[in-house]
Every structure is written in C-alpha cells, then in structure tokens.
Amino acid sequence: MLSLEDVSISYDGTPAVLGASLEVPDGSVVAVLGPSGCGKSTLLRAVAGLERPVSGRIGWDGADLAGVPTHKRGFALMFQDGQLFTHLTVARNVGYALRLRRVPDVAQRVERLLALVGLEGYGARLPGTLSGGERQRVALARSLAAEPRLLLLDEPLSALDAGLRERLAGDLHDILREAGTTTLVVTHDQEEAFALADRLVVMRDGRIVQQGDIADVWARPVDAQTALFLGYARVLEGAAAARVLAVVGLDGGAVALRRSALTVDSEGPAGGGPRSDLGGTVRTVRATPDAIRVVVAVPGIGEVDALASPAARTAVGEQVSLGVDASRLAVLGRS
C-alpha cells in the first residue's frame, strides 16, 4: 500500500504541493484529479522518486521511501505521451524491463503483453510508425512488463482524440482490473478519472481538497469550485439555492446543478416531478445530439441551464416553467 503523509514539494522555492496525504490500497485504482498546474504531476513524480519532497513522508507498506532511487522503487511510470524509446522497436520497448532483470523467455512474455493491450504482431515496428493510441498501449504494456508494485499513470489518455480516449479508457480499466495492478493515475479530465478509478482525490492549488469513493465525491462535492471542476454547470447560493432545493423538499445554503438538473416542463404537472414555481424566459437554445439545452432567466435567481425535450420546440423568448431532478444536483456545505 502506498501512503503519503503530509507531503510538500517545491520547485525552485515555489511550493507545488502542500501537505498532501493520501493512500493507495493494494489492488485499487486511485485517481488524482485537478486542473493543470495544480501540482498533481509533481506529486506523481515525487512518488516515482523523480522529485524530492521538502517535507512529509512517502511510504510503501510502512517503509519510508526517502533515499530509495527511482529504479529501486519498483513503481513503473507511464508518461502522458508514452515516452517510448524511439530507437528501439515495439518489442524491445516492451521487453526493456524484462531484459534489465534478465528474465527468461522475453519474446514470449512480450508477445503476451502485446496481446493483452491488443497489439499482436506489432513487435517489429518502430514507435515512430504508430498512432497515438497504439503508442499509449505499447507504453502501458512496457509498464506492465516491469510487474510494478505500483503503476503510475500521468494523464495516460490526454494526448489522444476524444473517440479513441473513450475506447482506450474502457480497455485500460479492464486491463488494470485483470492484472490487479495497484495504480495511481493523475488527470485533469473527469471522464478519464471516472472511467479508470475506484477512488478519487481532488487537488487544487497544490492542496488536496477532497477524497473518497468516486461516487461519493461525485455526489457530494465539498465546495463550489470543486463542484464546478467536477462538471457541475452552475452553483447557486443563498435564497436562490433555497428556492431550487425547496422544489424537491431539501434545504441548504448552496446547491450545485448539473446541466440536466432542471428540465423545461412543457406539459405541466403531468410530467411527473413536483410542480415548481420556478419559471422564466428562455434566453438561448442550443441543440445537441441528445437533447435541447436552454438557458433560462429566472427572476430572483438569474440565468440557469436546463434541458428541454426535442419535441417541445422551445424558442427564445418563450415563458417556460422548470422542473427539478433531485438526483442531478448536489447540496454543498454539508460534509
């Protein structure tokens, strides 16, 4: 088990990570999520032994790792862009760690690992001839070949385009579970974090602001900024929050709304949810493949996002009333 206790790291005197504490239990996948520049990559590099913390303790199964050089930690680090060794073939890249340890049957193991990441027969190719997704798969196979105690992934999918990212995220999830590898992944992309991890650690400005099971963090963001970063569309506070929450029988000082938390009630109360007194003027209408997204100006609250049914033909300037979906919002400040 990896444990960080109150770890702080500086770059040239500028603090990058402040008092971070977290644990990665054996066999689990933990994601550190934060905007770029929040210090999460620095944290990962410190775990790998590439940066030295100014204070705090990084330990493995209780043993302090300070002074243990990178190559003796047994943590494989996979970079954002793979960092394949361009002068070596795919097979030699994957077999790199095996050769270092003089493991027998390198060729067979490499073939098996390539099969695991879905790249059978790619062994003789050079990294330069691969696509971005293939390169990341090779990088993953190379990291797994080292049979690391801990796998460190630095934005493993960020360099890829959207479609590929989604597909590879699923594959990566399955491969990590199948191999049972303990993994720490850092990313700025919520979808990547949700696709891969069991536990989520949210970082901002060098500090860990929240951590927990992924569903818990998702459902109960600790504050407005975290909520917005996790993909909530808007945060309402005070009276505005109370009015929205009252519709679903809740109360609280602040509420974070997903885009789908409010729906345009074209049919009136027959729509199902409790009839609300929320209503306003449609300001913008934007069609997406799944739904119609509208922005509605509600008197006393301001502009809010809402979904409309494609059938409703909502138009700018129309007066609409809004329904509230309690499962799509989070009450803040009640940790």
Binding site: A48, G49, L50, F75, Q83, F85, H87, A97, R142, A145
Partner: peptide, 27 residues
C-alpha cells in the same frame, strides 16, 4: 535531450548506468 525517456527507463528499473548506456548514449 528530453529527460523523460531516461526517467521512464529508471521507473522501469534501470540503474543510472543502464539508463546511460541504453537510452542516453543511443540518443
């Protein structure tokens, strides 16, 4: 020379000498 390929090799278990001969020198 990018430092990261060498770091990747170290993370895979290569000693500083092995990093030098297998990654740095070829580059």
């Amino acid at each position: 020379l990018d430092r990261r390929p060498g770091e990747a090799a170290a993370a895979l278990g290569a000693t500083p000498r092995q990093v030098f001969t297998s990654i740095t020198l070829p580059s």
